[in-house]
Design a protein around this nucleic acid. Structure first.
Ligand SMILES: [Mn+2]
Ligand SMILES: [Mn+2]
Ligand SMILES: [Zn+2]
Ligand SMILES: [Zn+2]
Lengths: 139, 139
DNA sequence: AAATTTATCGCAACTTGGTTGCGTTAGTTT
DNA sequence: AAACTAACGCAACCAAGTTGCGATAAATTT
């Protein structure tokens, strides 16, 4: 709780009721959150513009990172490895479950370093896996 | 030309002027095509709905495959390894140039096979690299 | 504590990429 | 040539996300 508010303060973000609630929500989620997830969890109180802007601010300050989504919608997960606004380092794979539409950070699988032939300069890479997650296996 | 019409025929697609032109365009492109690319190349003649439906039909019948795009827009490239409607096999990496917004198929880089811990079942994987392409290096 | 400053919020209006419905056109088959 | 049906074109629609701007409320200064 208090540590949470500190994270906002450290990055020069204001500790508004909504942003505290949003950040709390992220810490409580093991996977990731879509706009819909947030809307339904926060209640209808907050406008979608507010949500988008908060997510944007959180991402820029290294609190969360965007993850791939089944339908390419906005979706975010907490940065576990204390990212800095300048350098987000989350070079892990992501898993999209096509059954429950959830996206999981696979922190223990690194994105492989690829070397391309002369001329290509790589700045970032992503490795995305698709299939069914443990909870959706029974079906 | 004639081989091209055959490909359409083989898959039960009609050889309309537009679809022949579109498929020709794909064979002439070394990288990939966005809707805008197609629009400007085909002239204003064809409706966007026609383009979307043709791309959809081509993809379903294994002529083209969707590639990632800088802004998540629709973008397609020719299938070089003769895909079947049932099984598209294009497990190669893709490179997005953030300068010219082009997407390249990196046919000689395979997407690595990943093994996850019990419970996750992987159906498909994608490896996407981002940076600047050879033509955009000088800048 | 009051005044000031400015990040954040909320509403409305807009943009964009893509989809759906449906009547028309034109390949393909008989 | 007649029949059948994939493909086309237009209009209307949809959903995710963005922009502008005035109102609210944290944070800072007096
Ligand atoms: Mn992640
Ligand atoms: Mn490809
Ligand atoms: Zn699942
Ligand atoms: Zn380029």
């Amino acid at each position: 709780m208090v540590a949470l508010k500190q994270k906002l303060e450290e990055r020069g973000l204001r500790k508004t009721a909504f942003r505290i609630e949003l950040l709390t929500l992220f810490t409580q989620t093991k996977s990731s959150l879509s706009i819909e997830d947030i809307k339904s969890s926060v209640g209808k109180t907050s406008d979608k513009v507010t949500i988008y802007r908060a997510l944007d601010a959180f991402e820029k300050s290294g609190l969360i990172h965007r993850v791939p989504d089944k339908a390419n919608l906005a979706r975010y997960a907490l940065c576990h490895n204390e990212c800095k606004p300048e350098a987000h380092s989350h070079n892990h794979a992501h898993f999209i479950c096509t059954v429950c539409d959830e996206t999981f950070c696979i922190e223990n699988v690194e994105v492989p370093k690829i070397h391309l032939k002369q001329g290509y300069k790589i700045n970032s890479s992503t490795l995305t896996l698709e299939g069914s997650c443990p909870s959706c296996q029974s079906a």
